[in-house]
Design a protein around this nucleic acid. Sequence first.
DNA 1: TTTAGGG
DNA 2: CCCTAAA
Length: 643
Amino acid sequence: MVFQKRLDVGFIGCQIPTMPRFPRSARGKRSPPKKVENNQMHPFDLLATVAGELLEKRESPCSLYETAERTNHVNSIKQKQLDNGSPSKSDIFDQGSCDEGSFVARFVSHEERRAASALALVKSDASEKDGFAGKSAQSGLKCDLQKLKITGSLKNDAIGIHNLEDPMDLDSKAIALVSSDSSVELTPFVDYHSAHSSSFQSVKDGAELVVDKDDDENSSGRTHNCAIYSKALKPHCTGERRVRKMTTSNYWKADLEAMNDGEIWNREIKPALRSRKLSYTRQRTQRSSFKRKKLLERVSFSASNGGFCSQDVPDSLVKCDKCDTKFDSSDPHAHLNDAHGRSCSTTDQRLSYESADHPVKLSIKSFRVPELFIEIPANATVGSLKRTVMEAVTAVLSGGLRVGVLLQGKKIRDDNKTLVQAGISNTDKLDNLGFTLEPNPNRAPPPHNSNSLVPESPNKILTHAAPAPDQAAPDTITQPPPNTTANCTESDHDSVHSHTNPSSSVDQMYDNSKALVPILAVKSDALSVIPLRNSRRSEMVRRIRRPFSVSEVEALVQAVEKLGTGRWRDVKLRAFDSVKHRTYVDLKDKWKTLVHTARISPQQRRGEPVPQDLLDRVLSAHAYWCQQQAKSTRLAEPFLLPA
DNA sequence: TTTAGGG
DNA sequence: CCCTAAA
């Protein structure tokens, strides 16, 4: 059985200037690299990367050069999406509401309107005391928020967000471009947040999420989750129409639930929402994932209803002082300006820039991933099919991609053309602007977890379905949404290639084998760039979590009762010899947790409950073998015994 | 490679 | 689950 499908990826919005102009050398340094943890994150990486590239180019002419000197004056950035009719509704952030280092993410839903969401990011750096000090000094930890407005264009159905942060602000904040790969690069950003706690609260209609100051990662991560799954990873085919009608939060929640039968939601997200404190394990797990998601979100949220907007704002609307960029926050139409008082972005889509000096703003509604060629036994389970598809997608996305730019169906190959020359700066043509993700012919897909992937050609991935999925291992997040393949066929060409942004520079970046992800650097004032594809990194994938089933526990207990607690290799061979994903270390760890579980009250236990009798056996066996171990130790080293 | 433990 | 020092 062969499947050949195209998957739609993401929803990315970006704004790019018609001409690149920011020297990388001027960017800040990057943070130490970290490993990637979930292979399923690759798509995110990819998207984040692409978005990052695009975003990198979005600095407005006016902001680029002043960035350096102004950097210290800006301490926070705030993005807001204003509700169409009631902007005040989304005005939950104000300077006083956020402590230093706070991170605010929120989603605003429009019940009636289709969807709009926004991510408000607020950050401040304690180390930056300069210009910011003036305002923040008195309030101590309060951060000076740059009010950025985002006006969601509700005309369209697409879920979208206009990312209207003032380019200037971004610059000032120092956008760090990092490899999505290495969570590391994210460090500046992430660490910053992790240093603070964040609360996660749902507002009123439940469609609004606020992540404020706190162990960010969790909360923000959750938030990002939606970004990732709903806008990036989730294939369009799931039903764009349906999606559009959902509020952002509902959307991602539903999305998560849909995928893997809600496993992610139930096991990861929901619990997280319920409890602010996650086990270290979970935190770690989510951390890296969310970091990436967070990055992606930063950029992807700029996507709007597939719209593209740009407009000049009268200087009178802008009050620009040397240190702060200000604009009327009450105005539903965001007006951002740079130090020169020039408006850098707004929401009116009617106007467009024709001049090469003006930035071209666009949003990428979605990316079409390269065609996948999958071969899987007819008797394979749906679950395995899902995994297979996911693996294929992951392999493709992580294997190196290029971005192709299509204008009115024609591929723009000349990377050196300016957007103006290519006709991309013309608003009218933007509707016909599209982006595609293409396998990078120069890069073979990286080794993957599943040995089932076999790159066939630059455009195809031949996937051999893994044998029968092991029943003990529940499918997890590596699976794509259930309806992925089913609906993919429907994905209309338009939705895939429609609006997007043009950027001849994108290709160049990929040519350089560098992928960038924009993040708001906490400390560095400059932009940092980190190569995405660390040859090695892609290989380092954190294993997926596979909770032990009761039967597995039973087998483990039985084996340990027989062999003892110090012979994990034997236990493995005895009881889990055929279960490849359970290593002796896993068994040892599981035993450890079992012992712990058996010692705590039932109320404190989480996850699938383990029969008490089993736990009793665990305790007795553990006690017995510890005693045996002690005895043998005593015999071996009698002199070490206490008198 | 295995164990043993901390993270 | 990950990471690692030790064995």
